[in-house]
């Protein structure tokens, strides 16, 4: 979930600098993600449709914490309409996957392909999907033999384990077990929202 009023400014014309787009603390490590928007091209793809392609690089910088976070891949960006109380209007979602226990600071030669060009004042949300720790470190189906517990789903309690669940305070929503299928696609409020100059 983004902060409604505080946004990273993003420029399409500063082609040679790393611009901050995201900051978070996961698995105890504080890190930030930056983007370099190198160039733009308008092309007709193999299917005859017009694509607006932004050639980018992403960089993750670990700042504090014991667990190394790393970039995995970027996923297809999507335009959506924000229906929250913030009423951000049309937003561009840039989707990235990040993993704990992974050393990879860069994603090079990434192509953000869109059906329409980015316009001034477009709001962009950076959705970072944090993958589970590697299965040989954390297996949710075999906690006893896991070398690490994912602190977002389980806490150690001696020889037993406690499941972690959240709900917004002041509501009567039932707490959800981490094994139940229902993910709202959001976490706690973090700086993950940008606006193009």
């Amino acid at each position: 979930m983004a902060h409604e009023n505080l946004k990273f400014p993003l420029s399409l014309v500063k082609n040679d600098i790393w611009q901050p787009i995201f900051g978070a603390q996961h698995h105890g490590t504080f890190y930030m993600i930056y983007i370099k928007i190198k160039s733009y091209e308008k092309v007709q793809n193999d299917f005859g449709k017009t694509e607006h392609t932004y050639n980018c690089e992403f960089r993750l910088q670990n700042y504090r914490g014991a667990i190394t976070m790393g970039l995995v891949r970027s996923k297809i960006p999507k335009f959506t309409t924000d229906t929250s109380e913030a009423k951000l209007g049309e937003i561009l979602n840039l989707n990235l996957e990040v993993s704990p226990f992974k050393k990879n600071d860069y994603l090079r030669n990434e192509k953000i392909k869109l059906l329409k060009p980015i316009e001034s004042k477009l709001v962009t949300v950076i959705n970072v999907f944090v993958l589970s720790p590697p299965i040989d470190l954390f297996n949710p189906n075999d906690l006893d033999n896991s070398l690490y517990l994912n602190p977002y789903t389980h806490l150690r309690d001696g020889d037993e384990y406690t499941e972690v669940a959240f709900r917004k305070s002041g509501t009567d929503q039932p707490f959800q077990s981490p094994g139940n299928m229902g993910w709202p696609g959001m976490g706690f409020c973090i700086p993950d929202i940008c606006i193009f100059d």
């Binding site: 399409l12 014309v13 082609n15 040679d16 190198k38 160039s39 733009y40 091209e41 309409t81 009423k87 951000l88 209007g89 049309e90 060009p117 980015i118 316009e119 001034s120 004042k121 477009l122 709001v123 193009f196």
Partner: peptide
Amino acid sequence: NEDLNTRPSQKIKLSIN
């Protein structure tokens, strides 16, 4: 347009290296 306040019509001109 869904929201004119957030959809300015001004176009960005890119400098492409």
